[in-house]
Design a protein around this nucleic acid. Structure first.
Lengths: 229, 229
DNA sequence: TATCTTTACATTGTATACAATATATGCACA
DNA sequence: TGTGCATATATTGTATACAATGTAAAGATA
């Protein structure tokens, strides 16, 4: 028997979340176009709602909306890539320190579950998922630090980091397995703020160093885009 | 003779800017309601556009939109007030340093014009305007540092600072006249990054110290709001 | 064939109609 | 009075119709 109960339609925020995760996991790659009625068909809502969701994502820097030409997944420039990691370098170490000072056993358990999931995803070759989980680990730390404002900014930066990685990661074949996250959890569990701050600084530098952020010629992309301007 | 040329209507972004400035200048105070019809009448556009503008502002933290209950100017809590200045303390000093390393004479001229305007506003008793100009001074520094991402975050933080000041400033009667901005410009003109960074740190602490961020009983506000939840 | 126009189509932008919800008003009853 | 309920009004939320714009296809001219 089919249930005909009219279930309430999905909200703009839920669509935002789902699409954002798709970008974060590289299921939607930089440059991908998102047509409004395509999206509205998928989620079963009107374009009104879809447009709200797309604008949300544009705000987070995930999408770029060009007037009369629609929305597409952003392609951060080299400069923006640098800026994202510079901003993270300013925000995350002190946040890690603050988190260390108030980490509870329950927090540790959550973080360890995060890491496990991430490893599982890597083992199964789900690179995109692993990347998303890795980002969420960082967000979790901001949550523990109980810094909502910074968490909000960090969320944007981490999503954009995912785009940067999609475009500028040196070796696509493998996200290097590293155990910095484990070491960080250790520092947090000991409430060692100094260590947490230092580890986070090093961790970000490590990621940063694995990006290929040299100037490129093909930067001026698809010719069409170059001429359009 | 009346010009009947159909001038193109104002955009959502322009409305966002105008309303944001009104909030920044305290012409719109925390708690003030913004009805969609009213706004759309004022600007001569449909509610569609107004709703875009209101959502933009909600994203910046200037407005709080409650489902089915409309938009009103945000009233940052004590915790949020702390968070705003903690975030600024992380971002602005290093930004000032970066700015110092690339400040040009033209930049100095702009900054000095800023300060002059600010003083003029103060002399004429236009506190709100002075506050906005003061905020713009800080944004100008981020612009000089050529850090677009941080500038974007800072803009949000500075707008919210204005709300915090509206709610928690110790002495409403007078924005204390200080010449820290002048000293900062001096450091920038000498390309003295260390000094700029230190001055910015001190400046932010100074503002922070002039806020009354002690717990209050009346925090739970208008009773209506408290019970509504 | 190549280039330029013109035309048709696809897609986004805006206004508006209607539905859903919240707020205010009036009335009954104690 | 004042409290509860019912009704009316105001306001926001969503879908849709139409306008504006961009893109692709077809045709014309050389």
């Amino acid at each position: 028997m089919l249930s005909i109960t009219k279930l309430k339609p999905i909200t703009a925020e839920e669509i935002t979340t789902q699409l954002s995760e798709a970008v974060h996991e590289h299921r939607l790659k930089p440059g991908a176009k998102l047509r409004e009625d395509e999206v509205s068909e998928v989620f079963g809502v009107s374009r009104t709602i879809v447009r709200q969701a797309l604008r949300n994502m544009a705000f987070d820097g995930l999408l770029t909306i060009e007037k009369n030409r629609g929305a597409s997944v952003s392609k951060p420039t080299l400069k923006e890539a640098h800026e994202v990691f510079q901003a993270r370098a300013l925000l995350e170490p002190s946040t890690a320190r603050a988190a260390a000072e108030r980490t509870t056993p329950a927090d540790i358990a959550r973080l360890q579950r995060h890491i496990e999931e991430e490893h599982r995803a890597l083992d199964q070759g789900q690179l995109g998922l692993a990347l998303k989980l890795s980002g969420n680990f960082h967000l979790e730390i901001a949550r523990i630090a109980d810094q909502h404002t910074i968490e909000h900014f960090l969320k944007q930066l981490i999503y954009r980091s995912s785009l940067v990685i999609a475009l500028y990661w040196k070796r696509r074949d493998a996200l290097c397995e590293n155990n910095t996250h484990n070491t960080l959890v250790e520092a947090l569990s000991k409430n060692d703020g100094n260590a947490a701050e230092d580890l986070m600084t090093g961790h970000l530098l490590n990621i940063y160093s694995q990006l290929d952020l040299r100037e490129r010629e093909e930067e001026s992309i698809s010719l069409r885009d170059a001429l359009r301007q």
